[in-house]
Simulated scan of single mutants.
Amino acid sequence: MRIKSVEAIPLEIPFSPFGKDGGTSKGWAGNKWQKLSVLLIRVETQSGLVGWGEAFSYNCIRPLKAVVEDMIAPTVIDRDASDIGAINLDLQKGMHLWGRYGITVFALSGLDIALWDIAGKAAGKPVFELLGGRSRSLIEGYASLFRYGDADIVGDRAQAALDQGYRVLKLHEVSVPPLKAAREVAGPDIPITVDTNCPWQFEEAAQVIEEMKAYDPYWIEEPLFPPEDFEGLAKLQKLTGVPLAAGENACTAMEFRKMFQAGAVTYAQPSVTKVGGITEFLKTIEQAKQFGVTVMPHSPYFGTGYLATLHLLASVVPDGWAERFFLTVEACLYGDLIEPDANGCFRVPDGPGLGMEPDPDVIRDYRMKNL
C-alpha cells in the first residue's frame, strides 16, 4: 500500500459569527477574520485508496502548503501508507532542524490524519474501531463563542447558544463583565469555560482570575504568556484554586509530558491538527492517564480535523466534549454533520476511515486560486 501522491488543497470559506458586530471578528496581525482557512491534505496510494487530512492553517496557509509540498511529500512518496508510526517519527526526526513547534508539526499532523483515514478504509472499518471501539455515538459539544469584549453581546450570544441546545459554553474574554453576563444568562448549573489566549504575566493573571472566581469558571484556559510557562501555570493554579487548561499550542506528546510533570493543568487540550496528528494525540492521552490529567481536545475545526476529533472522543476520550465555534459557515465539507442536535450533541460518522468524504463541490467552489 505505497503512497503515490500527497496534495495540499487550500480552502477559504466565509462565515458569520452569529454576532452583532457586522459579521466580522478580530483575527491575527490586525486582520479582520471573515473566512475559515482549511488546508486539506489528500494522500493517494498506488492501489487507489485516498485519505484526507487537515493541518492547522489559520493565517498560515501559504507557508503551510509549501511545507507539505516541498518538505513532506518528497519524503513520503513510495513509503508504505500503513506504517503510520514510523512515518510520523521519521518526519519528526527529519524536520527537527526547522523546529518542533508550529508549521512543520501542523503539516505532519495533516499527513498523519490522512494515513489513519487510509488505514480505516483499507480495513473497511471506521477509525474509532481501529482505536479500540466506540463507547458512544453522540458527543456532547460546547459552543465556543468569539471574543466580543462586550458584556451585552456575550449575554446575547450565550442565550442563543443555550437556545440551540448547548449545555456547555466557552468564552474568549479577558475581563470579568462578559463572564458575569454569561453566568447571569446561563444560571448556576451550566459549565462556562474561559479561553484567554495567553494575555497575561503572572501577577495580572492571578488578579483577574481571583475576580472571575465569583462567577464559577469551569476552567481558565491559557492565562499566561508564553504558553509553555508550565511552572508559572502550576503556581497559578495552586494559588487561585481555579482549574487551568492548556495545550492547543503544544506540539508532540513530549511537550505535554513536560506540562504534566510540572503539574501545570487540570485539563489537557491537545489539538489533532497541531500536536502531530492522531498518532501523537494517542501518546498524549496515555501520558495524561499516568498523571491523572483530564483530556479535553481543542477542536474548533470544520475540516478533517473535526472528524478525527469525533473519532477520538468516541473511543479513547470517552468523557471529553467537542468544541464547536459558534458561527455559521457559507458551505460545509460534511453537510449537516457539523450541526448539533437539539441537545447540543454531535454525531460520530461510522463509515470506513474517518467516516465521510469531503464534498467535492465545496472543494471546487472554495479552493483558493493562485496559491
Score class of each variant (00 low, 15 high):
R2S: 12
I3P: 06
I9Q: 06
F15E: 02
F15M: 01
S16N: 15
D21I: 11
G23A: 04
G23I: 06
W28L: 14
Q34R: 14
K35I: 11
V38T: 10
Q46K: 14
L49K: 12
F56Y: 13
Y58I: 13
Y58G: 11
N59T: 14
I61C: 09
K65R: 08
V67I: 07
M71Y: 15
P74C: 10
P74A: 05
T75F: 15
A86G: 04
L89S: 12
D90H: 08
Q92M: 15
K93P: 13
Y101C: 14
G102M: 05
I103E: 05
T104K: 10
V105K: 06
A107H: 06
D117T: 00
I118K: 01
F128N: 03
L130S: 08
G132Q: 04
G132E: 06
E140W: 09
G149M: 01
G149S: 00
I153G: 13
H172R: 09
V176T: 10
A182N: 03
E184Q: 13
E184H: 14
C198G: 10
P199F: 05
Q201S: 13
A206C: 12
A214P: 09
Y215I: 01
E222C: 03
L224N: 05
P226Q: 05
E228P: 13
D229V: 02
T240I: 04
T240M: 07
P243K: 00
F256G: 03
R257N: 12
K258P: 14
F260V: 03
S271D: 15
V275T: 01
G276K: 02
I278Y: 10
K283C: 08
I285A: 08
Q287R: 14
A288G: 04
F291G: 07
T294R: 12
M296E: 15
P297Q: 08
P297L: 04
S299T: 02
P300C: 07
P300T: 02
T304H: 07
G305L: 08
L307S: 02
L312P: 00
L313W: 14
A314V: 02
S315V: 11
V316A: 02
F325T: 12
L327C: 12
L327M: 15
A331V: 03
C332N: 15
N343M: 12
N343T: 13
G344F: 11
V348H: 06
G351C: 03
G355W: 01
D359A: 01
D365E: 09
Y366H: 06
K369M: 13
